[in-house]
């Protein structure tokens, strides 16, 4: 990422890379815990598997202050417009992680009540499978997202 050029206390990089680095190091999630996956999301933020080491323990309630929406849980037909509204209220750049089987594809509930995959409603960057995915799986998903952002793969939509 950096080339040491000249005296050793000088770091040179591109603005793009520096911005990406800053974005990944304090990507604040919005509280969008819906069902069982929310419990595992809270466990990821708790002391045992600490999200704070990535700068992410502040789950912002207001979507205006959040960068990342982790859709944790099953999205019902009644909740889908709310989901879209919260997503729209987030300011760019924003990312979405679809956590769990129900958020990714509707999970085991292939019926009238659920939206079969949250990507019918919002664009998703990373899907984390599991029912519910343990904290380590979620953390892997988050770090995958960090890598994607750092590598510049997710350009502005």
């Amino acid at each position: 990422m950096a080339r040491v050029s000249g005296p050793p206390n000088l770091l040179v990089t591109t603005l793009h890379k520096a911005v990406d680095w800053a974005r990944t190091r304090s990507m604040w999630p919005a509280t969008f815990g819906l069902a069982c996956c929310a419990i595992e999301m809270m466990a990821t933020g708790a002391a045992h598997n600490d999200l704070a080491r990535f700068g992410m323990e502040v789950f912002r309630a207001s979507p205006r202050q959040a960068d990342l929406m982790i859709v944790a849980g099953r999205v019902s037909q009644k909740m889908a417009p709310v989901l879209r509204q919260v997503y729209d209220q987030m300011s760019e750049p924003k990312w979405v992680i679809s956590m769990g089987a129900c958020a990714s594809t509707g999970g085991m509930f292939n019926n009238y009540a659920l939206v079969q995959g949250v990507d019918q409603v919002v664009p998703v960057d990373v899907y984390v499978p599991g029912c519910p995915p343990g904290p380590q799986s979620l953390m892997h998903g988050i770090l995958t997202l960090h890598e994607k952002v750092m590598s510049g793969e997710l350009a502005r939509r």
């Binding site: 849980g73 009644k78 509930f109 009540a113």
Partner: peptide, 13 residues
């Protein structure tokens, strides 16, 4: 109703 999953209907299936 924001988390209605139709579990009672799924149970019949």
């Amino acid at each position: 109703g924001y988390l209605h999953t139709g579990m009672e209907r799924t149970a019949e299936v």
